[in-house]
Design a protein around this nucleic acid. Sequence first.
DNA 1: CTACTTGTACTACCATCGTAGTACAATCCG
DNA 2: CGGATTGTACTACGATGGTAGTACAAGTAG
Lengths: 117, 117
Amino acid sequence: MPLYAQLTRAIRFAIATGRLRVGEQLPTVRQLAVELRVNANTVARVYAELERSGTLETRRGVGTFVSARHLDGNHHEEHEKHLQELVDRFLEEANAMGFSVDDLLDQLQSRRKKEPN
Amino acid sequence: MPLYAQLTRAIRFAIATGRLRVGEQLPTVRQLAVELRVNANTVARVYAELERSGTLETRRGVGTFVSARHLDGNHHEEHEKHLQELVDRFLEEANAMGFSVDDLLDQLQSRRKKEPN
DNA sequence: CTACTTGTACTACCATCGTAGTACAATCCG
DNA sequence: CGGATTGTACTACGATGGTAGTACAAGTAG
């Protein structure tokens, strides 16, 4: 998995689990780049993408921060839509492999007990 | 989505839904290539991959056929394993987006009523 | 054996993607 | 204003992936 995708996922996860809170500042593009031994541009792209999707806010000369936008109602609806799309892709793939919705449900339910997220 | 992936999926689907039965012959590599306006090699790669995974059997000079192997017990176990892997990937992605297993279950269950596969 | 049909190996080309390098622009702060 | 800090645009390079072209190999059928 490419670096930028890993980073995106990591930040999203940190926010989703509360390890990064609304308003909190993220490391500077360059700081994080050095720390991760990655080009500054790669970090910048991630920040930019997350800004487009409304999870971050960036102010030049200051830094990048966790946006509050993903708490309002509109964003919740969008989030729901993303879940639906994810499930769509999932179903399609499973379908091509010959699995039914019920198969998936069974499998998921057995996970629920093992690793309750 | 690349041609070879589309084709793979289509064949898998056809077999899973019974539109292609065990023992039945598939079009020749070249036939299908012409029909789909695709290079013969692309079709060949798909056939080869499906043979490796045990869904097809190929006999030079004769043709390619739907294998019976995917009906036996071993293959069922493998199939199960693939399902687990698929669910793993799915869970990881959903997790990175901040969804819990329960969210997914809800979403899936609402699908079950609408499009019963 | 020979002609024909089948799948296959090898190669090369083109597009796309991911990343890095460098130079630029906006903002802050003294 | 002017230096420092922030994010950003542009470019280029390397790697990978997908497809096509061509030539080959294995098997069948007469």
